[in-house]
Simulated scan of single mutants.
Amino acid sequence: MRVLVLEDDPELGPVIADGLRQAGFAVDLAADLAEADLKLDVNGYDCLVADRGLPDGDALTLVAARRRAGWTRPVLMLTALDAVADRVAGFEHGADDYLVKPFAAAELAARVRNLCRRPEPAKLPQLRIGDLELDLQRRRVTRGGVLFSLTAKEFAVLEVLMLQAGTVVTRSRLIESCWDERCEPMSNVVDVLIRQLRRRLGSPDLIETVRGVGYRLADPVQRP
């Protein structure tokens, strides 16, 4: 899941981003409304986490404008403005959640994860293909009843592959969904991580390589 954090504080912004990355999210940072607006146009984010008081205005104006244009991605306002009127204004302008600073990193990550799943009805609590099962609620992976320990990035890639099981997922789609803008599109990070996943999950191999395109997750028993 990929998140855009809109925060102008040069010290707090990286702290928020690092905390969310440790929780398994791919995170990009924007320091003002103009930068955030551009990144929202270019990238597909699962959630926006936004401070309100920014150098070029209130983030609520950006959220409200995008809502009027039909933008539906979830928004969490993360701000020191804690009056009831401030929270009400946040919801009235299109925010889905409102967290007041100072905050606990674990609570922020939990709220963001919950928001990311709300508009995705296809993200069922459990995904299964063959004897491989992914429990989104508990963030657990088992194969043949054996529990596997995956890194946050491995879990994210496996989730995308399982949600698109049977179809080819391009490398660029995996990068867009599971990495942030610090990732070099021409690097081999996807191929390296897929090799790690294959080693962890064992045989028979569930991940097919479609040369020059990407990868497909398929049950070996059902392959032609």
Rank of each mutant, 00 (worst) to 15 (best):
L76Q: 10
V42K: 10
D46Y: 09
A36I: 02
G19W: 01
A65Q: 14
D28V: 00
G57E: 11
L40I: 03
A23G: 03
A26N: 05
V84Y: 08
R67H: 13
A30M: 05
R68H: 14
L40T: 00
T79K: 06
V75M: 14
A83V: 00
F25M: 05
D51H: 04
D32A: 06
L20H: 02
A69I: 01
A36W: 08
T72R: 15
L76T: 08
A64V: 07
T72P: 06
A80Q: 08
N43F: 12
L76E: 09
D58N: 14
P74E: 12
V42L: 12
D56S: 06
L33P: 06
L78S: 04
A36Y: 09
N43Y: 13
G19V: 03
P55H: 03
A69T: 04
L20S: 00
A85M: 08
G24R: 07
D51K: 07
T61R: 15
L48I: 07
L48Q: 06
V63W: 12
L54P: 08
A85D: 12
V27F: 01
R68K: 15
L81M: 11
R21G: 03
L78E: 00
A80K: 01
F25G: 07
L62P: 11
D28R: 00
L38E: 15
A65T: 12
A69D: 13
L20M: 04
Y45H: 03
A83W: 01
F25D: 08
L40F: 05
A83L: 08
V75D: 13
M77L: 15
D37S: 15
A30D: 04
L81T: 00
V49M: 07
L76V: 11
D32G: 02
L29R: 11
R52N: 12
G44V: 05
A26C: 05
E35R: 10
D41I: 02
G19L: 02
A83P: 03
A59E: 09
T72I: 10
R68S: 15
L20K: 04
G44N: 08
V27N: 00
T61E: 15
M77G: 06
G70A: 08
V84G: 01
C47L: 10
A80M: 06
L54W: 07
D28Q: 05
A65P: 11
P55A: 01
A50T: 14
L60A: 13
D56H: 05
L78H: 07
A31P: 01
A85E: 14
R52Q: 14
L54E: 06
A80F: 03
F25Y: 04
L20R: 05
A30R: 01
A30G: 03
A59Q: 09
L29E: 04
L76A: 13
V27H: 02
L40Q: 02
A31C: 06
